[in-house]
Design a protein around this nucleic acid. Structure first.
Length: 104
DNA sequence: TACTTGACCAGGC
DNA sequence: GGCCTGGCCAAGT
């Protein structure tokens, strides 16, 4: 799998996340590991930082439900608009956490 | 080629 | 619940 295809796979998966739901970087990496064979949460974060502009990046948060540094305000506003379960610290992962398996 | 960096994660305090 | 540390792995320089 070429780097470009890898990036595309990440973006494709992020686009599949339903409104009001979120996925952690680690979950995305894990889901992709099945297709690409290699993945890491850090890599997903790096990809989002570079190519996240064309996808609902706000639906991807850290495993703790925290929002991307420097984008907390914007992400929170969008998530709130979609009706995502929010907590004072970020996102309620227990309620909003989503996995591609659920959609399948 | 080698070193540094990063929108991370899990574990320990 | 929040901060610090070590480990991960690939991209960027």
């Amino acid at each position: 799998m070429t780097p470009d295809e890898y990036v595309e796979a990440v973006l494709d998966l992020v686009e599949r996340i339903p409104e009001g739901r979120v996925m952690s970087y680690g979950a995305v990496a894990d889901a992709l590991a099945e297709r690409s064979g290699r993945a890491s949460a850090r890599l997903v974060g790096a990809i989002m930082a570079r190519h996240g502009g064309s996808v609902p990046w706000h639906r991807v948060v850290t495993a703790a439900g925290r929002l991307p540094p420097g984008h907390e305000r914007e992400a929170r506003a969008r998530l709130r608009a979609e009706g995502t379960p929010l907590r004072p610290t970020g996102v309620d992962m227990a309620a909003a956490g989503w996995s591609p398996d659920e959609d399948r």
